[in-house]
Nucleic acid binder design. Structure first.
Lengths: 194, 194
DNA sequence: GAATGTCTTGAACGGTCAGTCTAGACTTGC
DNA sequence: GCAAGTCTAGACTGACCGTTCAAGACATTC
């Protein structure tokens, strides 16, 4: 058997992620990608097939390493309200640290959903659905612990929380300062406890 | 004096708006624009100067005809809570009628803010700030009418409402169905009245 | 009806786009 | 050390990018 790849595929996907994340799918050219990934065009097409296929792979990795990882950690917390607070605080801290104002790759892609391939649409939709389901579980657990009024509709509240997270992610890309982002978190939490 | 323009500039801007709105700034080519506007490249550059300048003009028109117009109408309503309800209902109805799932041009641009020109950034930021100020006025009026608890922080609530509107606009582009969008509206209103 | 001056037209600009292909470099199995 | 077979390098494809420009069309003014 022959020669194996001499570049780290996973590392290359990671470098591609940063480009797509900051510039968006359309505005990212193959040259941008090969420059960042430090490979040549031939290698990119040999390894990934197409720009769209590479984006799919990037999105999958992003989802696994960010959304899934975060949910797993938050779900392990005992107090569901603390978990929600921690989530908002983490998003705000992330946006403060993000000099490029890249936002969230999933949300960025969600806004442009109709212009993406079906696979990408499916990936984003299911990722956000899982996020919503995660919120439902948290709210129901909080209700069981009597931290949240029993008459709150957990499913509606979960959709609202997802919407707040999405709104925060969008506004963090240049419209709101940190203080305003904190207001979103405060109000989101107040809504379900009051 | 010479010949005057023989195409309707305002109508052409309107046609350009639809293209930018559906496809996004980057994904829209000059050919896409000239096809839709039914003018030639030369005329486009003669009349507008550049793709970015045309986009600026489109955004300004969109803001005037949509955001400003809506705020003016809602602000004339006597009951501020009805105004908020009406706003959410209108957004949901608009998204249901929008087969192309174009969403909101201002929100679409806001998510991509760091990749736009300074003029565009300023335009979007001020438009959303005015939206926020509008929500502050509504909440304060509702408090004066004892429809909303006096201890609610009107400024925070306004930021939260803006975030909900933005979240709704994003999720309406393919992630949420109408019922889920209605949940966002319900919860947003419930938050400030409870 | 001729001069004026902005309009439209359409070709052309250099550059870049996503993607392909060939030639050669290289590791592996024998 | 040789054959097998996948990798990389980078030139190349034709199409399209945003933008410019020269030439001609035309309504207006005198």
């Amino acid at each position: 058997m022959p020669w194996v790849k001499d570049f780290d595929v996973d590392l290359a996907v990671d470098k591609a992620m940063k480009v797509f994340w900051a510039k968006g799918y359309e505005a990212t050219s193959i040259s941008d990608l090969t420059d960042a990934m430090e490979i040549k065009k031939g290698s990119l097409y040999n390894a990934f097939g197409s720009k769209n296929a590479l984006f799919n792979r990037v999105l999958l990795k992003y989802d696994r390493e960010n959304r899934r990882a975060a949910i797993k950690q938050l779900e392990a917390m005992e107090d569901p309200l603390v978990a929600i607070r921690t989530l908002f605080d983490a998003l705000i801290a992330e946006s403060e640290a993000d000099r490029e104002r890249k936002g969230c790759l999933l949300v960025n892609t969600a806004l442009d959903l109709p212009n993406h391939s079906e696979e990408v649409q499916a990936l984003v939709t299911s990722a956000l659905s899982e996020f919503e389901a995660f919120f439902v579980r948290l709210v129901e657990r909080a209700q069981a612990r009597k931290q949240v009024p029993a008459d709150l509709d957990a499913r509606e509240a979960a959709k609202s929380l997802l919407s707040q997270v999405v709104g925060l992610r969008v506004l963090a890309r240049g419209v709101f300062d940190s203080e305003s982002l904190r207001a979103i978190g405060n109000q989101a939490l107040a809504r379900i406890t009051a």
